[in-house]
Computed example of a mutant assay.
Amino acid sequence: MTALKAHEVARFLARPDLSEGIFLAYGPDGGLVRETAQRLIRYLSGEDPAAANVTIFDGPELDAEPGRLITEARSVSLFGGKRIIRVRSAGKALVMPLTELRDDPGGTAIVLEAGNLTPRDALRALVEAARLGRALPCYPDTDETLTNLMRESFNQSGIRIDTDVIPTLRDILGNDREITRRELEKLTLYAAGTKTLTREDVLTLCADNGALAIDAILDATGGGHAEKLEMALNRALAASINPQQLLAMLTSHFAALRRWRVDVDNGKSARAVLDSARPKPHFSRIGQMEQQLRLWSEPALAMAADRLLQATSDTRRKPALSETVLRRTTLALCMMAATH
């Protein structure tokens, strides 16, 4: 029985221990499921992918006639080459034909793509129990795997990135691997000539104004600008940015201000503190950050941290009120800044 863990899939794809049998890529991240299947097929196709005999089915077309899978797997390739069958949106209708093929696939590799399957799902259970079966779970990227993917992509292309490029990308992108890959390819192509990439480039190409609205919320809240805050909140929420995500970013922003405020209270200038920060705030925001450090004292920042903690707790208990809590909390913090 072979049931791989999610963190083991990348190592498996680099050197699969089977060349025939049933391979099941499954999970909630549809982009990663497709990428996993594609990478596996490229490896199984060998040194001459064009010579491989790859047949593609959509699951629903096999539901009414699942026996077609057996017929296809047992047929002899007219042109030689590795026989590979790829089934998108595979479902439980394939359990019976796969039961017949699992112990004797006849040299054929059957690559299945499916959604999020529970351990008790018949299709997943069959593949995990098969001697010639490998189940490959595909779950959304963590911050660590997403960061590694970005660095690897830029390093392979010889692109030098500013220190705030990856944090900015993490803020903009979701966890769907396909979307991430597409955005990285766009950035890599854009920077192919200069071999450099800046935060401004990322915002211009990928943000759809989302990251710009987030920065505007942070700076309007910290700087006490109520009108700007209202406009920035409206832009961010219209772009479907989650209120809980915005609260998390506000929490990080005020935690950074609090750390920097300690250095200012110990005698360093606000500019010197910001220049030595890692990652360093983007140059376009330095002036506003200096102003915020002048406006907020350590006790006031402690109160802000408590207020954001309570707001985060409130939104987790009552998600339906997330937007209301966000607006109320940011306005209160904005007024605190304006009265200093």
Rank of each mutant, 00 (worst) to 15 (best):
residue 196 T to W: 08
residue 267 G to I: 06
residue 12 F to K: 02
residue 35 E to V: 06
residue 253 H to P: 00
residue 67 G to E: 05
residue 49 P to K: 02
residue 188 T to D: 07
residue 15 R to S: 08
residue 86 R to D: 07
residue 58 D to G: 02
residue 38 Q to H: 13
residue 180 T to F: 07
residue 14 A to K: 09
residue 29 D to F: 12
residue 2 T to C: 11
residue 310 Q to T: 15
residue 230 E to W: 10
residue 152 E to D: 14
residue 234 N to W: 08
residue 283 F to N: 04
residue 319 P to A: 09
residue 333 L to S: 00
residue 290 E to S: 01
residue 86 R to K: 12
residue 209 N to L: 11
residue 99 T to Q: 13
residue 85 I to R: 00
residue 22 I to E: 00
residue 48 D to Y: 04
residue 40 L to H: 01
residue 192 A to D: 10
residue 243 P to A: 11
residue 201 D to M: 06
residue 210 G to N: 10
residue 57 F to L: 04
residue 197 L to Q: 01
residue 206 C to Q: 06
residue 177 R to W: 07
residue 87 V to A: 07
residue 5 K to G: 03
residue 319 P to M: 12
residue 157 S to G: 09
residue 23 F to E: 06
residue 238 A to Y: 07
residue 245 Q to T: 15
residue 306 D to W: 14
residue 269 S to H: 03
residue 146 L to E: 06
residue 33 V to A: 05
residue 225 H to L: 03
residue 34 R to G: 05
residue 78 L to A: 04
residue 93 A to C: 10
residue 22 I to H: 03
residue 269 S to F: 06
residue 320 A to K: 15
residue 195 K to N: 07
residue 310 Q to R: 15
residue 229 L to G: 01
residue 257 L to E: 00
residue 260 W to C: 00
residue 99 T to I: 09
residue 235 R to C: 06
residue 44 L to R: 02
residue 178 E to N: 11
residue 195 K to R: 08
residue 321 L to H: 10
residue 209 N to F: 13
residue 21 G to K: 02
residue 313 S to C: 14
residue 189 L to E: 09
residue 152 E to Q: 15
residue 36 T to F: 05
residue 17 D to R: 06
residue 17 D to P: 01
residue 2 T to Y: 14
residue 258 R to G: 06
residue 43 Y to G: 08
residue 320 A to Y: 14
residue 218 L to E: 01
residue 183 E to V: 05
residue 105 P to M: 10
residue 181 R to L: 11
residue 39 R to F: 12
residue 299 P to G: 10
residue 297 S to W: 01
residue 284 S to F: 15
residue 330 T to F: 11
residue 91 G to L: 02
residue 72 E to T: 13
residue 235 R to L: 09
residue 135 A to W: 03
residue 55 T to C: 00
residue 63 D to K: 08
residue 143 D to R: 10
residue 309 L to C: 14
residue 197 L to W: 05
residue 260 W to S: 05
residue 126 L to K: 00
residue 284 S to T: 14
residue 338 A to H: 05
residue 323 E to P: 05
residue 257 L to K: 03
residue 282 H to G: 11
residue 232 A to W: 00
residue 231 M to T: 11
residue 250 L to C: 06
residue 191 A to L: 03
residue 70 I to T: 11
residue 43 Y to K: 13
residue 116 N to W: 11
residue 169 L to Y: 07
residue 178 E to M: 13
residue 3 A to P: 04
residue 284 S to M: 13
residue 294 R to W: 10
residue 209 N to C: 08
residue 58 D to R: 08
residue 56 I to Y: 14
residue 120 R to E: 12
residue 289 M to Y: 14
residue 163 T to I: 15
residue 303 M to G: 11
